[in-house]
Structures are given as structure tokens and as C-alpha cells.
């Protein structure tokens, strides 16, 4: 009996040892993967007449406010890992600043680029990047203007800025950009963007240059102010996209409807956010009418700047602001719901 017990114990110990070994291998693999991005970005010691320091200034979520004051809130509003900063200096010339924002996902790096589609699109690779399943958002991955190059490259968001734009500094900025993106993957844009249609009916056109992808109410407020409070319960677990639909009237006036879609972690999370939004933004409106905010059908309310509407579909909430009439809102929601169904089907495949 004693011998049998000993065998069982030895077997258990062996299994435990194998289990520990597997865990250690996984951890080592993850660490190696995490380091891969940094290994790939092998910035040159010199570019043109500029020279970089031997090591980067490493910024993480603990010291980001020391580096950039309140601007840190922007990056912490996405899945932020860390930031490496290099300042290339030269005698008798202004510096070139390289900021490498390592985000935890490609979507988050895309979100940072999407905050401003302005500037000149530039190609930093010899082979053009083709989207296998393009969305309606601009396809640019690198934008340049007045000395600043901004790049989305996989999980990396990059700012390379010459403090003074000259032909020489511009060439150096582009050269650094090409080095940074070399041999990196180019994942597609966030899937959530597929719910956007370029047109609604025959009149309403999507302002593609104003498509923003984000997770934080501070980021939302920086381009479409709703409230200083987080009335839609946005957080790092949520994904959101917003853009205006625009029409031009016969007399040349522009009208816009602001569209916003938020994806929550589950339907309950979405419901609680919708309740909070309704109670705060529409406190005088009875949400129990026609089944209230709980009913998964479009709801519209006339307020000071037009109609505001929302439509909950499972874990998604779609909203429209400044809508001229309910019919337009219904058209938008119907189109989005159709796209959402396709999006969910794609996920299932």
C-alpha cells in the first residue's frame, strides 16, 4: 500500500512540475513577445546631423503626468503600455523628438491617430498597405504636417516632431518614420468601424474625416462635448466610434447629425449606461413611455437643438444628436442595426 501511495505522490508531483514548466514557458513567451516590438524598433544613432541619446526616457502610467501634465489622461483613456522618448539633437539646429507609444492593442494605436485625420497622408513603406476588409475610415496610417509625423503601426502610435521644419529635418523625420514601421505588421482597422455606412439615404453623407475611435468620455468631450461627467459609463472596457452625418440644403447650409455608437462588455453594462444617460441628459423625459429605455427599439426626444435618439441592441447603444427629425434618426438606426447584424455574424465565423 505504502509503495502505491508513493507512486501516486510521485505522479502528482510530476504533473505539478509539468504544470509549473508550462506556466513558466508561457510567461517567458509573453515576455519575449512584449520585447519583440522594442527589438524591432532599432532607431539609428544618427539621422542627418541629429544624434540620439543612448537610452530612451521610459514613461509609464505612473509617471506620465510628470512628462506631459494633463495630456496623460488621453493616453490612459486607451490601453496604454508605455512610452519611449528620444530627443535627437544637433549643433545649431532644433531637436527632433521621437515618441513611441506602445499600446496594448492595434485598435488603441489606431484610435490615437483617428483623433485628427488632418495633414498630408504619406507612405513610409515600399509596398502599399492594402486592407483586406476596408472600413469607411480614411486608410492613412501616416500623416505629416508642419514638421510633425504621426504614425499608426500595429500596436504602436508614433509622433516624430521636428521643432523647426526645414527640408533637412523633414527628410530626417521621414527617415525615422520609415525605420520605425519597417517589418512591422499592419493589422486592419477596428472592426467596430464596419458599422458605419458612408451614406444614409440619398442625402446624408458621413464625414469620414471626423471618424473617431475611443474608450473614454474625456476623449469624446475633446471633439463632441456631452458632459464633463461620464454619463455614458465609458471606460477602458468599452469601445466607441463617433462621426457626423452631413447634408447640404438647397440654399447651401450644412446640417449635421452627430452619430455615436458604444459597445459595452455585456447587455447589462449597456442597460445601466443607457439608464444613466437618460436620467442625466433627459431628466424631464419619462423613460417608461412605450417600454422606456429598456425596450430595444429607437426612442426619440425633442430637445433644444433638435432630436436626440437612442437605440439599444444587446450590448450596443447607438445615439444621434442634433437630428432634424425622427425619420432621419430611424433611417440611421436601421442602417446601423443592419450593419451590426453583419458585424456580429462575422464575429461568429
Amino acid at each position: 500500500m505504502k509503495g502505491r501511495k508513493r507512486v501516486i505522490i510521485i505522479r502528482l508531483l510530476l504533473k505539478f512540475a509539468i504544470f509549473l514548466l508550462i506556466i513558466m514557458m508561457i510567461l517567458l513567451f509573453e515576455e519575449a513577445s512584449a520585447q519583440t516590438d522594442e527589438i524591432q524598433i532599432n532607431l539609428p544613432k544618427t539621422v542627418g546631423k541629429w544624434t540620439k541619446p543612448d537610452s530612451a526616457q521610459r514613461i509609464n502610467s505612473q509617471n506620465i503626468f510628470e512628462y506631459m501634465d494633463g495630456a496623460g489622461e488621453l493616453y490612459l483613456g486607451y490601453f496604454f503600455n508605455h512610452l519611449d522618448v528620444y530627443e535627437y539633437t544637433a549643433e545649431k539646429a532644433n531637436s527632433i523628438l521621437v515618441e513611441l507609444y506602445f499600446m496594448k492593442t492595434s485598435d488603441d494605436a489606431f484610435g490615437l491617430l483617428s483623433l485628427d485625420w488632418g495633414g498630408e497622408p504619406v507612405s513610409l513603406t515600399n509596398s502599399p498597405i492594402t486592407e483586406s476588409m476596408p472600413t469607411v475610415a480614411p486608410s492613412s496610417r501616416s500623416l505629416y504636417g508642419a514638421g510633425l509625423l504621426r504614425i499608426w503601426s500595429d500596436n504602436l502610435y508614433v509622433r516624430v516632431m521636428a521643432f523647426q521644419e526645414t527640408p533637412e529635418s523633414k527628410e530626417a523625420v521621414f527617415s525615422l518614420g520609415r525605420t520605425i514601421v519597417a517589418n512591422r505588421k499592419n493589422p486592419p482597422q477596428p472592426k467596430l468601424l464596419k458599422i458605419l455606412s458612408p451614406t444614409i439615404g440619398s442625402e446624408w453623407m458621413l464625414r469620414k474625416d471626423r471618424i473617431r475611435y475611443f474608450r473614454s468620455h474625456l476623449v469624446l468631450n475633446s471633439f463632441y462635448y456631452l458632459s464633463h461627467q461620464n454619463i455614458l459609463n465609458l471606460d477602458i472596457s468599452t469601445e466607441a466610434v463617433t462621426a457626423p452625418y452631413e447634408t447640404v440644403t438647397a440654399i447651401g447650409d450644412r446640417k449635421q447629425v452627430q452619430f455615436l455608437l458604444v459597445k459595452y462588455t455585456n447587455p447589462d453594462h449597456a442597460q445601466s449606461a443607457l439608464d444613466n444617460f437618460h436620467d442625466t441628459y433627459l431628466p424631464e423625459q419619462n423613460k417608461d413611455t412605450f417600454g422606456g429605455a429598456k425596450a430595444e427599439s429607437p426612442h426619440f426626444y425633442r430637445i433644444e437643438d433638435g432630436w436626440v435618439g437612442y437605440n439599444k441592441t444587446g450590448k450596443y447603444i447607438a445615439l444621434v444628436f442634433e437630428c432634424p427629425d425622427q425619420e432621419t434618426g430611424v433611417m440611421i438606426f436601421n442602417k446601423i442595426e443592419f450593419n451590426l447584424t453583419n458585424l456580429e455574424d462575422d464575429h461568429g465565423k
Partner: peptide, 16 residues
């Protein structure tokens, strides 16, 4: 509910 009504929103800017 009363507390939520005192949260500043976009509507306050439109209404003055």
C-alpha cells in the same frame, strides 16, 4: 434624480 439634474451637460450650453 435631483442630484443628476445638476450635472452639467451640453444642453446647459444650449439653454444658457
Amino acid at each position: 434624480m435631483e442630484n443628476k439634474q445638476s450635472i452639467l451637460t451640453r444642453r446647459d450650453f444650449i439653454r444658457g
